[in-house]
Design a binder for these strands. Structure first.
Lengths: 209, 209, 209, 209
DNA sequence: AATGAATGAGAGTTCATTCAT
DNA sequence: CATGAATGAACTCTCATTCAT
């Protein structure tokens, strides 16, 4: 059985010495204290290496953040793409599975989601632009599903241009309150938000019991 | 006519010297750079006073943040309460007006909303607890409306316990992307999100043109 | 009697707290270890204050160096100007007294002369340009005397355009080897270099005994 | 035809792998940034090798500086010795040719001259003493010429003990301002300084046109 | 209420150097 | 001989906060 516990590290071994340990420690530190509140010393401690050694891997704290966020985005995007591809052709199941995948990522990598949402602002220049572009890729996937559903008549939302953003806001917000020991299981959360998504685009909702 | 422009300061004169200027400067600084990224020097500069004078008004940076957030929350809560009170007895119009008010606050005080959402985490102890409690007050208002609507049969959501949180997440997220010169006006945004809210609770939606 | 001892600080009280102490400590530190070899901690220790307090007076190490050099240049220039003004109209005595004054400065503020000569290179931008311009002012004074002497026929050098620079090089070089307990007294050194200067411009030299 | 261009590296191949490249890169780095301002990484980059490989050739940054300076001094001394030996027996032509050779070195290896003059101070212990001794050898050569000229009556300076140092100061100072595209050619500069030298020792000067 | 000077702690980053390979 | 990874010390500079005035 796949380990979906919170401790599953976002970044697997990269084949370059301590790189993965540093990235994961950075993610944890930025998650705990925010980008500006976390120090490179914190990251080093978390990675079990020396402060100065961090700079053999990443030239600056900013670039370290950028790399962490890039890994998070890549994984998120990959999950959603895969889910959409496996979901057949109709808009509703595609939306449902895309949202399930997105929510799954949020739950599996809650800290990564939080850091992604709140610390991108501390990037500047090309690092920031790249990140924003990558994030837009994910949103575009959802936008296409909405457009498809509206065209096919499955979705009747009067706001087709805005619905995707709202859906993703809703899913991303899970990271701000989710607790693994909470009332809802991972699966229930995914179901719930899939239904929210369909409700937002004003698709016919299945009966519930 | 009321000034709803973005520049409208959140905190009006408090009758105590530079206090309002300091609070507004702090809001701006925390908004620009985050709590840990903004320095007391930044705040002092923004307020047009000296660094050390800040400490005649607030004993610490944390307390300064706490006060800023308290003002934001108070204003937000007040707006929503007033809207609900003025909205009659039925759940749907109450929800619609509550959301309109909430969105109005987000648009009028975008920075305050952003700071509220992202910097509470840097508070600790009683300051934090008070803030969270105040925020819960606002959410409780919405939860009551949802409960009322479910009971009356207007709302058919299978997730009555979670819908309020989702609605507020959606409204708060506006602050992360809204631009005054964007495609949607303040009023349109409020309408849109009112409809989102009703969709989420699975109320019958009015036809749209 | 005027104190011409080596310990006479270059910078007298500036009327602003520890400023003079910091400047003099910086001069000493830069003199001992060079600009890059001296640390701000060294300066702070020498000035009897804390490291961070340095930054209440000077915004950066570079600016601190710039200010030190500015004080040195100003004092040197003032001495030479005064000497020339008091020396009457003929080129030879003007040259002699200018050189005497310059040598006097080198002996009185040997470290300042050394730092001036060797650490300007670590300045950049406007600070550097200003310093170079100020230094050129002093050299221009000498160049004018040379030109005057050449025109009057007192000086017969075939290199009127270059002689001034050479004379000043010679005087400045004293700082690289002078020891207060050396063979030559301050006055003898001044005489010697005055004669060097006249020799370089090929003026008739007085008999010596 | 001998390449006297500025780009002519001071240190030719030493027959030991990258040694010459490292020494020349060190010279350049120390010239650009000073001993304390240049890093071993700078040197490695300039030499096209890895940082750690430097330590296969030189045990420390200090020793690297010492070796660079030793090469410079050796070359300078050799040039002056050869010139004096080839100049016949009379003091005046010997002085003239010695100065010409010295100036030639300064022009050919301006950076080496600058580094020699300003960075010896960062050496300590035996390295420093050896360097100073080697430098004194060159000065002694000039001192002997002065003594010879004074004894023969060619030179009438009242400061026979100090003239040599002044002459060398003058020549070395060229390195601080010389630009290959300047007003004076290499040969003219040599002539000029030869005349300066004779003027300083108060030898009869040839007429000039 | 208001200021400028002061401070200790800590920030990000670079350093010369070492070591295993 | 050559390398990349590693390290402890040190760097310049900024921080929140205090205090005397």
């Amino acid at each position: 059985m796949i380990d979906r516990s919170r401790g599953a590290a976002l970044i697997a071994d990269t084949g370059r010495g301590n790189e993965a340990a540093i990235l994961n420690a950075a993610l944890e530190a930025f998650g705990n204290s925010g980008f500006n509140g976390a120090s490179m010393r914190d990251v080093a401690r978390g990675a079990g290496t020396s402060l100065s050694n961090l700079y053999n891997y990443f030239p600056s704290k900013s670039r370290l953040l950028a790399e962490v966020l890039r890994h998070a985005n890549t994984e998120l995007y990959a999950r959603v793409v895969r889910a959409v591809e496996d979901a057949g052709d109709a808009a509703s199941p595609r939306m449902r599975d895309a949202v399930r995948a997105y929510v799954g990522f949020v739950v599996d990598h809650q800290v990564a989601m939080l850091v992604s949402a709140s610390e991108v602002r501390y990037l500047q220049g090309p690092d920031r632009e790249r990140l924003v572009a990558e994030r837009d890729d994910t949103q575009s996937l959802i936008e296409q599903i909405v457009a498809q559903g509206v065209e096919s008549g499955e979705f009747r939302t009067p706001y087709p241009a805005d619905a995707a953003r709202s859906i993703l806001s809703l899913c991303a917000a899970i990271a701000t309150w989710y607790r693994p020991d909470g009332r809802l299981s991972r699966g229930q959360l995914a179901e719930q938000h899939a239904r929210y998504a369909l409700a937002l685009v004003e698709a016919p909702l299945p009966r519930h019991d």
